[in-house]
């Protein structure tokens, strides 16, 4: 459905700021595809190229058989796009916003009501409220409705859950799943690694390059190390001591734990416990950890650097 071929893009007068370098991706029809990466990785630039808003310096991209550069007019009819900084019209009501976006696509709310019904029922009680007075989660839902109102074939969502609370984020992903079942191909970007497992396929992006493109389960399965979660009284000292131990490949904070990476079959929980006790640390708690997408991302990022 979406085919990205060796796309590069740089900004600045002499092209000195490289935003994307040699990106290739492949997204199948009906897939919920996630582009995962930190701020400044190049996610928005890639989205803008695919939504015909920017021209790539090199390479090309094809969506549903149409080139994003030459066939931009045709493409703009079948794309749904929710920009990252999109903020609706604050002084228009919920209903007016939706009606406006429906009419610029020459459709009406009624025609595609079935598609947005699940999301829109939550908004309907606030029909006459100005969009500026909605909560963050509600705003995102309305924005999604606006991007969906013309029943696009492909939906681009640029960081739709940034700045939204955990509950709303969960709801938002459930809505995306339902839309996927309607046959809409969804390309979504996010800086949150925990959302990666909700996608059918993900691409990890860092500094304008793709680190890996895979199914989330396949990606975590490819993590070829033992991973432990470590907690003790002095987390900072603990990390420093562990990183200096030659048996340890890496140690980094991960929530309230330290994640400790070792080569498979070398040391176990007891070895680490003894080592830390010998260094004078107390309250030690160690557990086995199943690697997450974030662990894979950190691993890929560090291997790439060295």
């Amino acid at each position: 459905m979406i085919e990205v071929n060796h796309i590069s893009k740089s900004f600045g007068k002499a092209g000195e700021v490289s935003a994307l370098s040699n990106i290739s991706l492949n997204i199948d029809e009906g897939q919920l595809y996630g582009l995962i990466g930190p701020d400044g990785a190049g996610k928005t630039t890639l989205f803008r190229i695919l939504t015909t808003l920017l021209l790539p310096d090199e390479g090309f991209a094809v969506i549903d058989g149409m080139n994003v550069v030459d066939d931009y007019k045709k493409l703009r009819k079948i794309l749904g796009y929710m920009p990252g900084r999109f903020s609706l019209y604050q002084d228009l009501s919920v209903r007016e916003n939706l009606e406006f976006y429906a009419s610029i696509f020459n459709t009406t709310i009624e025609v595609n009501y079935a598609l947005i019904k699940d999301i829109y029922v939550q908004l309907e009680p606030f029909n006459n409220r100005r969009a500026g007075a909605l909560s963050g989660g509600m705003k995102q839902k309305l924005a999604l409705c606006c991007a969906l109102i013309h029943k696009p074939k492909v939906l681009f969502l640029d960081e739709p859950t940034t700045g939204v609370d955990v509950v709303s984020r969960k709801e938002f992903w459930e809505m995306l799943k339902r839309l996927k079942n309607e046959g809409i191909t969804i390309f979504v970007s996010t800086p949150y690694m925990d959302e990666a497992s909700l996608c059918d396929k993900i691409a990890l992006i860092q500094n304008g390059s793709i680190l890996s493109e895979n199914k989330p389960s396949a990606l975590t399965a490819s993590f070829n190390y033992s991973l432990f979660g470590v907690k003790c009284n002095q987390m900072n000292d603990c990390r420093k001591t562990l990183t200096h131990w030659k048996e340890i490949l890496d140690a980094y904070s991960f929530g309230e734990y330290l994640h400790v990476k070792t080569t498979k079959g070398t040391i176990g929980e007891n070895d680490i416990q003894e080592f830390l006790l010998a260094k004078g640390l107390t309250d030690i708690f160690i557990k086995d950890v199943i690697p997450t997408v974030e662990d894979c991302f950190i691993d890929l990022m560090k291997t790439k650097k060295t």
């Binding site: 808003l53 703009r76 999109f86 610029i104």
Partner: peptide, 10 residues
């Protein structure tokens, strides 16, 4: 950011 959305429309 509204212009972005308007541009990606017919």
């Amino acid at each position: 950011g509204n212009m972005e959305m308007l541009l990606v429309s017919p």
